[in-house]
Design a protein around this nucleic acid. Structure first.
Lengths: 340, 340
DNA sequence: CTGTTAGCGCATTCAC
DNA sequence: GTGAATGCGCTAACAG
C-alpha cells in the first residue's frame, strides 16, 4: 500500500527569494538571465534554490512569457521504424536549443489527427511539426490562426500550410517504375500500405509502367507478416510476376520470405524492391534493393526551420526537397542470371 | 519569404463568454463540466467557441488546477526497437484517460537523466515513468519531494523509489546460462551492451556458468554492425566458441551474419541467443533463439499504476514482475547436428 | 544592478 | 443554475 495523497507543498520562487533575501524578480533573473545580476546575488539565490529544493514551474512561466519552449510533433505511429531517425533528429536538434518535443500519434486516421492537434495546441507549443500534409480544413485554419511556425514533413507540396521538408512520393514511384522498365521487367506488381504517401508512390509507379498493375493493398503500417500475405496474393493474381515493389522494407522482407518459402529464388525468379532503406536492408540474403531517404535530415531541417522562426529569423527557403535515391542491391540484381 | 512575426491574438475564454453572453465561469463550466449547466447555455457557449475559434489554454488551466494531464516518460533512446512496444502502450493507455505522454531521451548517460528529469518536472507532470532504476540521489529526492506517482520500469527492485514494473535481469542471465549448460556447451561467450541492465544479465550468466567468460562489450545501444564486430572479437579470443549470448536481437543478428561470413554454420558450428524477441527474430535464417519480454504489458501496467494513483486510488501491488521466457528457435537448435 | 506593479488565462471558492 | 472575486507561479514592463 502506497501513499495515496502525498502533500509536500513544493517551494516557489517566492520562497527562494525570501530565503535569499532578495525580491521575487531578482531571484527570477538570477536563474533565467544571470547576465544582468551581480555575482554575489546569483550565489545567494543558487544557495536558496538548494536549500528550498526549488524546481521552477514552467507552466507559470510559459503562461506569462507566451513561450512554452515546446514543439508538437505528430507522427502516424511511433513504432514505425521509418520515422524513428526523424523523431530522433527532431528531439535532439530541438533539445540543443532548449526545446522539448511533444510527440503524438495520429494513427493513420485523419479524424484522430484533428483531435490530437487540438489537444496539442491547447498546450501552446511554439511550433508544430507534422507528418504528411495537414488534411482537414479545420486543422489548417486552427494552425494558421495560432500564427506559430508549422512544418509539414515527409511529403512535398507547392503550397504548404507554412513550411515543408520532404520529397516527392510521385517521383519515387516513377523512379522505381523506370528502374523496373530498364531491367526489362513488364510483369510487375505492387504491394503497398493504404496510406496517402504510399498510394502516391504507387500512382507514380503505374504512371511510368503505363497501366494499372497487380496490386495488394494492406492497412498501414505494413509489416513483415503482411508482406508474406501480400506476396501470396500477388502470386495468385499473376504466378509469373517478374518484379514487385513493396512500400516498406519490412513489407519487402515479408515478400522475400514468402517467395522463398514457395521455392522461388530472389532475384532469380522474382525481383523485389522495398522502400526506406532500413538498417537491416543491406544485410539480408539477398540484400534488399530499396529507396533511401534521409529521415534524420528531414528531422534536422524541420527542427531548424521551427527554431529559426521562433528566433524571429525570416526563413528564405520554406520548401525543402531532401530528395531520395534508389539503392541497388542483390534483390533486383544479376538480371543475366534470371528466369527460366 | 514567410511571415516572421504573425500576431493574430488568439481568443480566450473571456471572449467566448462575452460572445455567448454569459460569465467567464459559466463558459468554463459549459466546456469542462457540462453536467451542471443548462442545455441552452451549453449551446450558446458552443456557438461562441466556433465563432471565436477558441482553443483552451491548458497552461493556464493546469496552473490553477495543479493537474497538467501529462506524464513524463524517460527512455534511453527512442530509436531502440526494444522499448517501442512499451512507449506505444504507454502512449495509448494514457491517452485513453486523457493523459499525454511527454517523452524524453536520457541517452544511456546518468548525467543527462538528471538534467532531463529536472526539465520534465518543471512542466509539472502528474506522473513520471522512467526506464531503469533512478540512479542519482538528487533525482530521487526531487521526485519524492514532488509527491507524484513514479514508476520505474524494465527492471526490478525490492525497494523502488515508488512503484516498479519489470523483470529481473539477473534471472534472465541465469536462465540463459542454464539453458546453455543444459545443451552441454561450456565454451561460451557474451556480446553485450554496456548499460546497467545488460551488464546485470551478463552477471547472472557468468554466475551460472561459474566463471568469467569471453566477453565483448560495446557502448549501448548495440546494433547489427556492432554485432559483427563483437563476434569477430569473441572468435579472436576463442576460435572454438560453442555458443554466444548477445544482449539484443539486432546485436545477435550481426553476430550470426559475421559467423556465417566466416564460414561457420549457425547453429552447426556456433549457437547464438539474443534478447528481446524482435519482430524479425522468428523469421531469420536460422530463426533466432531469444528472450521474450512483454514490453507492451510493461507500458500498460506502468500507465495504469500512474492513472490509478492520479485518481486517488491506493495501489495494492506497487511491484509488478512481468517475467520473461526463453523462446527456443533454430539458432540454438539441433544439438545432435553440431560440431566436429 | 535591483525592485514594484501588473497581469498571463483559467479554475476554485464562495455567494446568490 | 449562475456569477464575482481571488490567485495559481511566474515574467514583462517600467521604474529607481
Amino acid at each position: 500500500m502506497r501513499k495515496p495523497t502525498p502533500t509536500p507543498k513544493p517551494a516557489t520562487l517566492h520562497d527562494v527569494a525570501r530565503v535569499a533575501g532578495v525580491s521575487l524578480i531578482t531571484a527570477s533573473r538570477a536563474l533565467s538571465n544571470p547576465g544582468v545580476v551581480s555575482e554575489g546575488t546569483i550565489e545567494r539565490v543558487r544557495d536558496a534554490v538548494m536549500k528550498t529544493g526549488y524546481t521552477p514551474n514552467l507552466l507559470a512561466g510559459s503562461l506569462k512569457s507566451k513561450r512554452s519552449m515546446t514543439v508538437a510533433g505528430l507522427v502516424p505511429v511511433i513504432s514505425v521504424p521509418q520515422f524513428l531517425p526523424t523523431i530522433r533528429a527532431l528531439t535532439e536538434t530541438l533539445d540543443a536549443q532548449g526545446y522539448q518535443l511533444i510527440l503524438g500519434q495520429t494513427g493513420y486516421a485523419n479524424s484522430r489527427e484533428e483531435k490530437l492537434l487540438s489537444t496539442m495546441i491547447s498546450r501552446r507549443p511554439d511550433g508544430v511539426v507534422i507528418t504528411g500534409l495537414v488534411g482537414s480544413q479545420t486543422s489548417r485554419d486552427q494552425l494558421k490562426r495560432l500564427g506559430i511556425p508549422v512544418v509539414e514533413m515527409w511529403d512535398l507540396s507547392a503550397h504548404p500550410l507554412d513550411m515543408i521538408v520532404g520529397f516527392s512520393h510521385l517521383k519515387v514511384g516513377s523512379a522505381i517504375g523506370g528502374f523496373f522498365l530498364n531491367k526489362g521487367w513488364r510483369r510487375v506488381g505492387v504491394a503497398t500500405g493504404d496510406d496517402h504517401r504510399a498510394m502516391t508512390r504507387r500512382e507514380g509507379f503505374c504512371a511510368v509502367i503505363g497501366r494499372e498493375v497487380p496490386t495488394a493493398i494492406v492497412p498501414a503500417p505494413s509489416n513483415l507478416e503482411m508482406g508474406r500475405r501480400a506476396m501470396a496474393q500477388l502470386l495468385a493474381q499473376d504466378p509469373k510476376l517478374e518484379a514487385v515493389y513493396c512500400s516498406s522494407d519490412e513489407f519487402a522482407l515479408g515478400a522475400i520470405i514468402e517467395a522463398q518459402a514457395r521455392g522461388l529464388r530472389v532475384p532469380g525468379d522474382i525481383a523485389i524492391c522495398g522502400f526506406g532503406d532500413a538498417d537491416f536492408a543491406a544485410h539480408l540474403m539477398p540484400s534488399l534493393t530499396t529507396v533511401q531517404v534521409d529521415g534524420a535530415a528531414i528531422g534536422r531541417r524541420a527542427a531548424q526551420l521551427i527554431i529559426d522562426r521562433c528566433a524571429g529569423r525570416a526563413v528564405k527557403e520554406p520548401i525543402i526537397d531532401v530528395g531520395f535515391r534508389i539503392v541497388e542491391r542483390d534483390s533486383t540484381g544479376a538480371s543475366a542470371a534470371r528466369r527460366k
